[in-house]
Structures are given as structure tokens and as C-alpha cells.
């Protein structure tokens, strides 16, 4: 029996593991190797340059800018869609008429690609005929011509808004599922005991939604770490690198300037950041697991 099991383990695992090791694990480890070289993407003769690339990172002003933007992006891209999703879920869960139609409307953007979403929002922010300026112009009763994506002050924020628009539906659906698992009796008890709506949400519903929050945050972390496509489409990291993130910076250095050694060093830093966030997350998850079983 033991032998039989061993046979099937090998038969089943060999192909998937081979693919995984060759296309994920091996590239991941060799990223570390390339980060110590000055490879340019084409020549096969490149040198080992020690910690040069990492020293360059420390003096790279654009890297700092990108690191700051990445933190802003991560915090906003995790927090905003989760909060919007929770609010929408609470509103829809209040047995409002047409709930399922609302659910579909808010969920729709998730099916669209980052390219389509990015391009659509470029039109919303378009200075001459974009929706944003049209609406502001209508309210202010005078022509409004602000170039949202071309101004360093608003470029990153504008992309974050577009991103939140797309991601909100996902957290809403997960919170809705979490809400249906909360027993009606409990809510009724709250009403009998005279708890206000806000007290009910804050003290009863939200704590019971913790498992849903765990899933929402996990998905947001995964998605926001990968938030490259929409930035590439909407701003390309500009203007003047004001919306550059580490992923964007890494792409530009490697595939625009062909500094693949330096690009590898940035990707190693990106990897270490991701690793740290994931470790923090799993630690919190363990705490939650201990409390909620």
C-alpha cells in the first residue's frame, strides 16, 4: 500500500512540479544571481559586479520615488476597495429592492481587463471632453480643463480611483457571502436589546465578518502587488515619474534601458518586500485563526 501510494504520488506530481520548478522556482532564484551582474539583455558576456546594483539602488532618486509611490499605492489599493465593498455589501444586505441587480452592476468591472479599464478611465480624465471635467464644469457652470493624468499631483491618485472602481465588486461579493452566514436571531436580539444600527454594525456584524475580511485583504494584497497593467496603460509611471511604482520602475530599467542586472536587483527588493508583507499577513492570520477557530 505504502509503495503503491509512492508510485501514484510520483506519477501525479512529476509533471506539475517539473513545470513549477523550471518556470517559477528556477527563474526566482536566478533573479538573485542576475542582480549581481551587469547583464544587458542580449550579450552573453556579462560580468559579476558584486553589490554594485544594490549600491546604485541606494543612490537612485527614482527608486525612492517609486518606493514611496508603491507604499501609497498598496495602502490605498488595499484599503479603499475593501471599505467600499463593505459599505456596498451592508447596503445591499439590508434587503433593499433590486439587490441582485445592484450586485451585478457593482460586480461588472471585475470582468473587464486592466487594459480596457485603464483606457476607459483615460477617457474619464481626458481634459477636453472627459466625464470628470464635464461634470465639474457643469456644477461650476464654467469650462473646466484640468489634465488629471498629466499633472504630477493627481496622476497616482487618479489611477488609484480607477483601480478601486474595478476592485470594489470583488470585496463586496465576499462580504455579502460573509453577511449571509450571520444568523438572523443574533440581529433580532440586537434589535430587542435596543442597539442602534451603528452599534450593531460596529460591535456585532463587523467582528463576525473577520473571516471575510481575511479573504478580502488577502486578495487585495495579491492584486495590488501586481498592479502594473493599469499604471502602464494610464500613465506609464509619468508624468516625471510621479506615478512610478517599483514594478513600473523595474520594467523601465530592464526593458526600456536594457539594464537587466539593475532591473534584477530591483526585482529582488520587490521580492523581499512581498515576502515581508506576506509573513506579516500570515502572522495576523494565525492570530485570527486562534480566536475564531
Amino acid at each position: 500500500m505504502e509503495k503503491e501510494n509512492r508510485f501514484w504520488q510520483i506519477v501525479f506530481l512529476s509533471l506539475p512540479m517539473a513545470v513549477f520548478v523550471i518556470l517559477i522556482i528556477w527563474p526566482l532564484t536566478s533573479s538573485f544571481y542576475y542582480s549581481f551582474t551587469n547583464w544587458n539583455g542580449f550579450n552573453s558576456d556579462y560580468q559579476y559586479v558584486g553589490f554594485d546594483n544594490f549600491i546604485k539602488i541606494l543612490t537612485d532618486k527614482l527608486f525612492y520615488q517609486a518606493a514611496i509611490n508603491t507604499s501609497i499605492w498598496m495602502v490605498a489599493a488595499i484599503f479603499l476597495p475593501s471599505l467600499f465593498g463593505l459599505v456596498l455589501a451592508l447596503l445591499i444586505d439590508s434587503s433593499v429592492p433590486g439587490g441582485s441587480i445592484f450586485k451585478s452592476i457593482f460586480y461588472l468591472p471585475i470582468c473587464l481587463s486592466a487594459v480596457v479599464v485603464g483606457q476607459t478611465w483615460v477617457w474619464i480624465y481626458q481634459p477636453d471632453w472627459g466625464l470628470m471635467n464635464t461634470v465639474i464644469g457643469f456644477i461650476a457652470q464654467e469650462k473646466f480643463n484640468y489634465a488629471w493624468l498629466a499633472k504630477p499631483d493627481t496622476a497616482l491618485g487618479s489611477v488609484i480611483l480607477a483601480w478601486s472602481w474595478q476592485q470594489t465588486g470583488l470585496s463586496m461579493v465576499i462580504y455579502l457571502a460573509g453577511l449571509t452566514s450571520i444568523s438572523e436571531d443574533l440581529i433580532e436580539v440586537c434589535e430587542i436589546e435596543g442597539a442602534s444600527t451603528w452599534q450593531r454594525i460596529r460591535l456585532v456584524i463587523f467582528p463576525l465578518l473577520t473571516p471575510a475580511t481575511v479573504v478580502v485583504i488577502a486578495l487585495s494584497v495579491i492584486n495590488s502587488l501586481k498592479g502594473f497593467d493599469i499604471l502602464y496603460i494610464m500613465t506609464g509611471g509619468g508624468p516625471f515619474n510621479s506615478s512610478d511604482t517599483l514594478a513600473m520602475h523595474m520594467y523601465n530599467e530592464s526593458f526600456k534601458k536594457y539594464l537587466m542586472g539593475y532591473g534584477s536587483a530591483i526585482s529582488v527588493v520587490l521580492f523581499l518586500i512581498a515576502l515581508t508583507i506576506i509573513r506579516i499577513y500570515f502572522k495576523q492570520l494565525k492570530k485570527v485563526d486562534e480566536i475564531y477557530g
Binding site: L23, I24, W26, P27, L28, S30, S31, Y34, L225, K226, F228, L246, A247, M250, Y251, S254, M260, G263, S264, S267, V268, L270, F271, A274
Partner: peptide
């Protein structure tokens, strides 16, 4: 993030 394995 996929950028980590892009270059290799």
C-alpha cells in the same frame, strides 16, 4: 509579483 521572474 510577476516582475520577480520576468528577466530570467
Amino acid at each position: 509579483p510577476p516582475q520577480v521572474i520576468l528577466i530570467p
